[in-house]
Amino acid sequence: MRILCAVKRVPAPGARINITADRTDVDTTHLGFAMSPHEECAVEEAVQLVERFGGEATVLTLGPPEAEEQLRYAASLGVQNAVLLSTDGSPWDPQRTARAIAGAIETLENEDGPFDLILFGNESADSGGYQVGVRVARALDRPMVNAIKGIEPDIDGGVVTAKREVDGGFEVYRLPVPAVLGVKEGLNLPRYPTMKGRLASKKVGVRVIEAAAPPGGQSRMGLRQPPVQESTTVKLGDGPGAAPAVVDLFEELGLLR
């Protein structure tokens, strides 16, 4: 199988997300970077499918040169190829992002043949536009379903069975290959990179393509904090001695039936 995963480099904030003084961006001064947990699962799935069925996995990101870090991370988990669609790091709107990614996929497919499966995250961790994967699938005229938490390809049948998480269970879809899926965390349990994987990832060549596409109709004007929910914390006690106060609280709230 030939599989492509699209991942986005995002800051990894802790207790709070700080904003720059001009209120246009997340203040990343003291932050590390990551990809969305959904996308980590996309990468893990690609690696597992290639382990099972053979073939190769490619990871692609659109972002600043520093996004090579996320590509190397994916490579350390077992992805064979990495593609950086490089930008100057300014935020790209979803239409523009999708156009550039679709264009790059066409280039890659013209060279080496179609990807059987293209995996996106259900939504990006930061901007959460819920659309880049759908737009890319449309541009390539491929079937696409979002919110997927289970993937089972039938290579001979040329279909992939995908399970979508809904309240109380799953819906089942059967897509003809080549197909596109938007996946959610919980699809699998991503592995941690091994030392061997980390060393191997240094040898993976990152192909750099300058990202190019006309902007779309959505733009980020500014960011702000949501209104804070003021709360004062009432201390119920220390250690096991607090148990009666805790059970009093259950009783008070009518939870001790």
Binding site: I19, G128, M221, Q225
Partner: peptide
């Protein structure tokens, strides 16, 4: 200009729409 959520609700964005 619309207000939308980012980061699953941790941050708000003023988004321009054309």
């Amino acid at each position: 200009t619309l207000t939308r959520v980012q980061w699953g609700g941790s941050l708000l964005e003023e988004a321009g729409l054309q």
